[in-house]
Each structure stands twice: as structure tokens, then as C-alpha cells.
Amino acid sequence: MAKILSMINLDQRTAPEIGASIASRVRMRRKELKLTQEQLSRKAGMSLASYKRFEQKGLISLDALIRIAMALDCEDDFDGLFSKRGYASIEEVLRGQSR
């Protein structure tokens, strides 16, 4: 039982927290570029209501999020998503070889 508990990361964020964090970063980028919500929603090819819902609640489809990233010239940020992570220590390298 202790081994199972040690594997659980209690610091993990929830899906809504991650969505809100992404929405916040998009909002900051939009403002850096001096775009209104309406301008960005138009540029991304989505309704203003959908864009506002994203900024307020972090709710969005993957397709719409990619279109927003493209409108903000940030689509390359998706390249690292789910990519293979490097090893943090020699122990991880050895454990990976023994599998």
C-alpha cells in the first residue's frame, strides 16, 4: 500500500486547472499583440462566444485551440506535447535499460 501511495503525485493539477492556465497564457499573448477577443476569434475562425468561453472557463476543442495557436503564431508550441522526455538521472537510464 505504501508503494502505491508513493506513486501518487498529490501536487498534480486537475484538467480544469490546466485549461484555465492555458487560457490565461493565451489571453496574455493576445493582449501582448494588442488584439481584442473579437479580432482573435475572427482570425482563428471561431465564434466570439466560443472564444470568450475559452478565456473564461478554459473549455475548448483541440481543433479550436490549434486554430488559436496558429492565429497567435504559436503552433510550434505543440511540437513538444507528448514528446519523449529526457532522463533526469543515471538511475532512470539504468531502469529504462532493464525493462
Rank of each mutant, 00 (worst) to 15 (best):
residue 21 S to K: 13
residue 54 F to C: 03
residue 66 I to K: 09
residue 29 R to G: 07
residue 48 L to K: 11
residue 71 A to V: 02
residue 63 D to Q: 14
residue 53 R to A: 11
residue 73 D to W: 09
residue 44 A to E: 01
residue 4 I to W: 04
residue 49 A to R: 13
residue 2 A to H: 07
residue 30 R to N: 08
residue 74 C to Y: 06
residue 77 D to E: 12
residue 73 D to I: 08
residue 41 S to P: 04
residue 35 L to T: 01
residue 18 I to Q: 10
residue 25 R to T: 07
residue 23 A to R: 04
residue 76 D to M: 09
residue 9 N to G: 08
residue 21 S to L: 14
residue 20 A to W: 02
residue 13 R to H: 14
residue 64 A to Q: 14
residue 76 D to Q: 15
residue 8 I to L: 12
residue 96 G to M: 06
residue 16 P to A: 01
residue 31 K to R: 14
residue 23 A to Q: 00
residue 98 S to L: 01
residue 48 L to E: 03
residue 14 T to Q: 09
residue 5 L to P: 05
residue 99 R to M: 12
residue 74 C to Q: 06
residue 37 Q to Y: 00
residue 63 D to R: 15
residue 19 G to K: 02
residue 69 A to R: 01
residue 10 L to F: 10
residue 28 M to L: 14
residue 19 G to Q: 12
residue 22 I to V: 15
residue 33 L to R: 12
residue 19 G to M: 00
residue 50 S to I: 00
residue 73 D to F: 07
residue 4 I to D: 01
residue 80 G to K: 15
residue 43 K to Q: 13
residue 79 D to S: 10
residue 56 Q to V: 02
residue 38 E to G: 01
residue 42 R to L: 01
residue 43 K to T: 09
residue 51 Y to C: 04
residue 93 V to G: 08
residue 68 I to S: 04
residue 73 D to N: 14
residue 13 R to Q: 12
residue 22 I to D: 08
residue 62 L to A: 02
residue 41 S to Q: 06
residue 61 S to Y: 07
residue 50 S to T: 11
residue 77 D to G: 14
residue 4 I to M: 07
residue 85 R to I: 04
residue 85 R to N: 11
residue 79 D to C: 04
residue 20 A to T: 10
residue 64 A to D: 11
residue 99 R to E: 13
residue 5 L to Q: 14
residue 34 K to Y: 12
residue 47 S to R: 03
residue 17 E to Q: 15
residue 9 N to Q: 13
residue 47 S to W: 04
residue 99 R to I: 10
residue 87 Y to C: 03
residue 99 R to P: 09
residue 76 D to G: 12
residue 9 N to R: 15
residue 13 R to Y: 13
residue 3 K to N: 09
residue 69 A to M: 15
residue 74 C to G: 03
residue 15 A to Q: 12
residue 54 F to D: 00
residue 8 I to N: 00
residue 25 R to G: 07
residue 34 K to R: 15
